[in-house]
Write a protein that binds this DNA or RNA. Structure first.
Lengths: 324, 324
DNA sequence: AAGCCGGGTGAACAAACGTGCAAGGAGGGG
DNA sequence: CCCCTCCTTGCACGTTTGTTCACCCGGCTT
């Protein structure tokens, strides 16, 4: 990028800031702003879009603390976590649901992440959707770290996971640390060995002191299986084993039962996500769930105390509190 | 207000929140929202207006810290205060200027005031303009306190000042403490006496430990005199005295010279605003200035170290840094 | 030097939005 | 019980905003 480009860039930002100020603080019309900035109305429209898209304009919704939605209150009382219920009409499809929840999370995420923080991020369809919408917020010295490997029998999985992580990293100006291992090792011993490598243990150490974790839930036996279960990461025998162990879900390729327990689930010895005892040390653990198919999985994750902040669509939230 | 009204009220807020979420977080059109909420598009438009007006939706502009405007940077370097430069076209009238700066301040004020804080507020045309636009933000246990008396020879001044203070109090859900004394006493001894009254000294004590002060500047000898100078608060003899003392401005009816000094200005013995030594103890001191007519006054206030955060229109900011 | 390419611009159109207005409905007073 | 008042609603209209398109301009290639 040349010097000229750079200064043009900063001109553009300056103009966008001015336009945003005039539009959102002083309530001028775009026409009036165009006049003050000696340009056309369309350009102002574009400037403002740009300002919103790049996070120069930050729009928050603050419910007066005395009136959180009834559902959020119920969830808070029942599970002692903060719930963010995303309004989605009951007749929406699961794809819609996912997309809309993801969009909401993408917009609000900046409130949980700041300079000099470390955020751990899983991967999967939910994370992918969020990553495509996340609104930028400039931070300094912050790190984003991949929670679990993404390789499978066919690929190293690097491109998929790194695309997702990359978008988060770009949006926050954070350093991205990838985790270049398969999602599941074939042999537990290989994992043990690799875990002792300094390059890997450095990552594990970072994971153990991250400030925020962001993840979705896997639900192996629901009708709309999550990415992990459709992507060729597991074999028939693995499924049988999961079924035998009465697994209801996973977080970053670590599986758990309906009561939140993980003991004796053999696949976990080969999975690459953070152990739940490690995860539970993380101060903020943001879980994003959409669709009632993941209800059992969500209940298990709550039992396992994996969640401090839950983002969930309205119907699923309702189902969560419906029957005890 | 009946029980039914109350619940209707909260329904309205709930709907407004949902609408705001759908509109600002999920980018639905008002049409789509109307459909989801089973109402008309116009009602959604109104709901959203309501949500913005009542502060349910909070729009902030965050300039990336590496790119504050050149002017703000210059002011910061020269005077060691935080400047908020409000873009206003050069050809705007002084009335425009005031109105637009006031609007901007009104929108941003919530960022400086929170629960359990005490804010001192002056009165005058600037404060009046701000008060008419201030966006609400619910707080608990916060207090707003009048900085200086408002009575004059004709009226107690209560209605004007209390109208202003009342709007701030209402917007923040804060308890308002009025200061029922004249702007200037006729006799310094009366002030002394009253200052020893417990009801008054309680107010003075609160003033001495306020968290934020918000004030404009008076400029007695400019061509567009401030409220105090037009409202019959002072007599010819007073003006002469001010002129003799080389006064350039006042904050809350306390006068100062170009070098920021106040010693020997006789009128101050009869004024009712907080002594500058008291004011300087306040952590955040927000000063709102618009129009180059107040430039001399502003320079004096800066010399007197009365300001920590300055809100000023662009031309005045430019003039401030122009000649040394 | 001509020619392509990418990014940005304003005009024109289409979509989305705000608002005056008349109609309807709840509540309160006669 | 009726009527009056006040508030809210949806419609219709005019305005404001988003987006497409043709065009221009600087930079880079051939």
């Amino acid at each position: 990028m040349s010097l000229v480009d750079e200064s043009a860039q900063s001109d553009r930002v300056r103009d966008a800031l001015t336009a945003a100020h005039l539009y959102y603080m002083q309530d001028l019309t775009m026409d009036a702003i165009a006049h003050e900035l000696h340009t056309s109305r369309s350009s102002v429209s574009r400037l403002l879009s740009h300002a919103r898209a790049t996070g120069l304009v930050d729009i928050q919704i603050r419910s007066p603390l005395d009136a959180p939605s009834r559902l959020e209150l119920l969830i808070q009382e029942r599970f002692h976590i903060t719930a963010h219920v995303v309004p989605v009409p009951d007749h929406a499809t699961d794809v819609d649901r996912l997309e809309r929840v993801a969009l909401s999370v993408a917009r609000i995420l900046g409130q949980f992440f700041d300079s000099n923080m470390v955020m751990g991020i899983a991967w999967g369809s939910t994370m992918n959707a969020i990553s495509r919408h996340v609104t930028p917020k400039q931070t300094h010295g912050s790190q984003i770290i991949q929670l679990n490997g993404a390789g499978n029998m066919r690929t190293t999985g690097l491109s998929y996971a790194s695309e997702i992580l990359g978008r988060f990293g770009y949006a926050f100006g954070a350093h991205v640390h990838q985790f270049p291992v398969p999602a599941f090792f074939d042999n537990p011993a290989t994992k043990q060995a690799l875990w002792r490598e300094r390059s890997v243990s450095r990552l594990l150490e970072m994971q153990s002191r991250m400030d925020v974790a962001l993840f979705g839930l896997g639900s192996p036996f629901s009708e709309v299986p999550s990415h992990v279960y459709a992507g060729g990461y597991l074999e028939e025998a693995d499924y049988a084993s999961l079924s035998r162990s009465e697994v209801v879900g996973d977080v970053a390729t670590i599986f758990y039962r309906a009561d939140g327990s993980t003991d004796g689930i053999q696949l976990n010895a080969r999975g690459t996500g953070p152990d739940f005892t490690v995860l539970r040390q993380t101060p903020r653990r943001l879980c994003v769930v959409s669709g009632t198919a993941k209800l059992a999985s969500l209940r298990g994750a709550l039992k396992a105390d994996l969640i401090t902040d839950l983002f969930v669509d309205e119907s699923t939230a309702r189902a969560l509190v419906a029957n005890a």
